[in-house]
Write a protein that binds this DNA or RNA. Structure first.
Lengths: 341, 341
DNA sequence: ATGAAGTTTGACACCGGTGTCATAATGTCA
DNA sequence: TGACATTATGACACCGGTGTCAAACTTCAT
């Protein structure tokens, strides 16, 4: 029993002595086909090492059992390294897809490219997951365009008012609150925030708001001088902290918008002769692996990436099935470590 | 100018007043088509937001401009976490694919599944990259089967004698040598190795051999009692080190088969009241991000994941083009940090 | 004017499945 | 035994492109 090249359903039909239609039905376990015939077809398919040609199948059915993920790089990310938080997300999304029987197409995107509908328009994926920090998505028109094409997609990250997408995100506001409450409970009332608290980084801005609002409620003011701009890299956190110190801002509690920033901040503090946590308490955000390894280990607001990946996939699938769904907000959790005594 | 649903080449043909064949040619910039016609077709395609249907195209041409990566989990990997080394590899492979104009299908595999040809047989990918630690691939028959189906694939990891696959790997033997040489140069001659030095973990075994052979050449013996079994997790490294200490094996230099193992080992050493590097020097393998963050920071043998990803993709593409290629061995590099004084 | 070579285009089969419809075979009941 | 429902199967169009072949139209030399 041989075939030239890869086996097709016609080859099976030939050996089974039935029509190709019947083979197709039998392989998909259609109730229309006789039990005996079905077994025979499966038997032969196995012997021929037959696999359905997904291209043909997808072409006909107009769906692909595949999701695509567009990963937007940190604007300043160096060539080789990717934010470990996103790698974790990538991992959990991969797992979630596998669980749902979907394949995953991965693609890096530079924001400038025409990423609009590369995948879904070309029928390679049934839906798209958009993933990235910062303002990569503040291309209202692009999202609008995706919507008008009836493309199914979900975004990870802060919900931006008026943006028409479906999002899954960590409760960034609540995360900021957790950090502030923790500082307050430790009587650390002279606080600074490091991170880009502007609408260019909606996630960071929301974390900042939760942080600031909570402090305000306790009559603790966080002056303008106590907010240093930084993107999510270690270097950026390092320099932002140095400039705070250079400006003689004094503080005993530091909340960083991400763990990478926090790690850079700790480096700068140490260099300036300040001890963590004795002189300054530090809280990060994300709970990347390194947070547990650095010295002192970093207290941080954990984003549950496993759950996040699952929700992104589940919501996207629901969207594809045209079910009614809403934005999802995942609860953050404060992980206590050495950097806050 | 409208179309019901997604635009097809027929829609363009209609508006351009030419045949669908000509549209297809024009869009692929065939020299057979008149410059003027070409421009007109492109213009209309743009207006209609047309994208080639990859399923139809792939079906006809029998290729997909897509590679697949099968990621084998650490046998004991817990549900959510993935070895950061592999996440890095995943990232660099993703980047390398993008650079070559290929898409990437990602899939987790449990070793038990029939992963044989899921992707390539079903025409979803032109080639496969197999990635994982340990003995996940010692299914000679499976690889043989892939070969007999003329499936194009490359493996990451130690070359196993007699295994018929094309591999890209770090020079694990050389990496072991680097570690040994470094210890020797520091006059640390009472060494232990932690890692599964058996044929179940070809990479680890090769690292061990390079380490041991070099020590032997300097008349430094590494007794059986100085080798502790461990898989690539922090926990495993921790327990392996504890059992060494419990057995009263004394040593002033520890070489771990991976960074995760090394991190676990350092934890065990600290708990036992031993100082790193004063009492014991430690070298790891991989150079994951955490190696730079732990305290003391970890001297380690770096595997260049960026280059590795590129080579995997390049070699696979060469294989697909039926070019003659051979196994690739990437040079390791010793990264000096605090854990070796 | 005629033929040869070059350029540009359209018609059509084809890739390998899926879904619809018609048909054949079998069973059921009056 | 004929009318009709039920079950199992085959024929065939179709998804949206690509590649081949023939034909139509130029151009240019003879």
């Amino acid at each position: 029993m041989k075939t030239k090249g890869k086996a097709t359903s016609f080859d099976i039909a030939h050996y089974a002595g039935v029509s190709q239609s019947t083979v197709s039905r039998a392989l998909r376990n259609s109730p229309l086909v006789n039990e005996e015939t079905r077994k025979k077809v499966w038997e032969i398919a196995k012997q021929l090492n037959y696999k359905v040609d997904k291209n043909a199948s997808n072409l006909r059915t107009q769906q692909s059992a595949t999701l695509a993920i567009l990963l937007f790089e940190d604007p300043t990310g160096d060539e080789s390294q990717i934010n470990p938080f996103f790698l974790n997300m990538l991992g959990s999304i991969t797992r979630a897809c596998a669980k749902e029987g979907y394949d995953l197409l991965v693609s890096f995107q530079s924001a400038s490219q025409d990423w609009r509908a590369e995948y879904e328009d070309s029928h390679r994926a049934d839906g798209i997951i958009l993933l990235g920090y910062g303002d990569y998505m503040d291309y209202q028109s692009r999202l609008q365009n995706l919507l008008s094409q009836n493309t199914k997609f979900v975004c990870w990250g802060a919900k931006v008012e008026g943006r028409p997408d479906l999002t899954v995100s960590c409760d960034n506001y609540g995360g900021g609150q957790l950090a502030a409450q923790h500082f307050i409970s430790l009587n650390k009332t002279s606080c600074v925030f490091i991170g880009d608290a502007s609408e260019h980084s909606p996630e960071f801005l929301t974390r900042f708001k939760g942080f600031k609002d909570t402090l305000d409620q306790h009559q603790i003011s966080l002056g303008e001088r106590c907010v240093a701009n930084a993107i999510s890299t270690e270097d950026s956190g390092y320099h932002a902290t140095r400039s705070l110190l250079a400006n003689n801002v004094s503080f005993n509690a530091l909340f960083a918008a991400s763990d990478l920033i926090a790690i850079g901040a700790i480096k700068a503090l140490k260099e300036a002769g300040l001890r963590v946590p004795e002189d300054v308490n530090v809280i990060g955000f994300d709970n990347i692996a390194a947070a547990n390894y650095i010295s002192p280990s970093l207290t941080t607001v954990q984003q549950n990436t496993t759950l996040a990946g699952q929700m992104l996939v589940q919501n996207l699938l629901a969207l594809i099935r045209e079910e009614q769904i809403t934005d999802t907000l995942l609860p953050p959790k404060l992980i206590l470590r050495q950097s806050t005594s």
